[in-house]
Design a protein around this nucleic acid. Structure first.
Lengths: 139, 139
DNA sequence: TATTGTTATACTCTATAACTATA
DNA sequence: TATAGTTATAGAGTATAACAATA
């Protein structure tokens, strides 16, 4: 029995999900990477920019503009690490957490509409499978 | 009950799938878009470049270099449409079909290794769900 | 005038390589 | 000398606009 390539099926789905996120993010004044950063800081204890960059799979130079903007918006604080004055410690603010939660709620509401097309047990199996596969080591 | 964003789970999976495809494609002398084009032509009756571009969700100007290369490689033929001499009719060659099938077999073998991490019924539900969600209209 | 395929141009993303300040 | 963060530069990928041939 033949099937389509996984990547070929996932690509349009990913496109659709991102297209649905865009207006939500824009309405909240967040960039895609800004949302990714807030989500990372909200769910994991991350200390430095280098640690953050590695966690979200981006280069350390790529996130700087994002952090600058988030800090300007008051969603993030950067403080020098007293123990190593080269490093900057990252902390999401209460406002940042609120913003992230509001955006996520809207995004997941959209996603749930999509998931609603699936039979109930396919849906939970799908989410379970995604959670497993997304957590695999890169290799 | 909270879950991660769909997009956030799909993104690393997509990255992993593409990373696994790259060496296979390179070994066969195909670009990613070249493979996409051959797959489209092999599975759907597509006549013109405009139709192909729309089918794979790319701009018509973006596929030209891809088509040039595939033609050079002998995987594709372009002929002027006698009924409308502006248009060029696309046809995958036998060699192109063979190449596409060989590449797809290798790619899916990799993918199957990933899917092997899932319990059997989750796996079929996952594939079923993906087929459904990837086929949804962009909206 | 509109459309097909093509080419040229500009823009966005990303990766890489310098640079600074600390260690 | 090495590392954290920053800035500058260059490259890839993409979108848009202009163009020639045909309708």
């Amino acid at each position: 029995m033949t099937r389509r390539d996984l990547a070929a099926m996932i690509a349009p789905l990913q496109r659709a999900l991102i297209a649905a996120e865009m207006p939500v993010l824009r309405a909240h004044g967040l960039s895609m990477w800004g949302y990714v950063v807030l989500s990372a800081l909200d769910s994991e204890p991350i200390r430095t920019q280098a640690a953050l960059a590695e966690f979200i799979g981006a280069d350390k130079s790529r996130i700087i503009g994002v952090l600058d903007e988030l800090e300007d918006q008051g969603f993030l604080q950067r403080t020098r690490d007293p123990a190593d004055r080269r490093a900057r410690l990252l902390a999401i603010t209460d406002e940042g957490r609120r913003k992230r939660n509001a955006v996520q709620a809207e995004i997941q509401r959209n996603e749930d509409r999509l998931l609603g097309r699936l039979p109930l047990d396919d849906r939970s199996a799908f989410l379970r499978a995604l959670a497993t596969l997304s957590a695999l080591p890169p290799q």
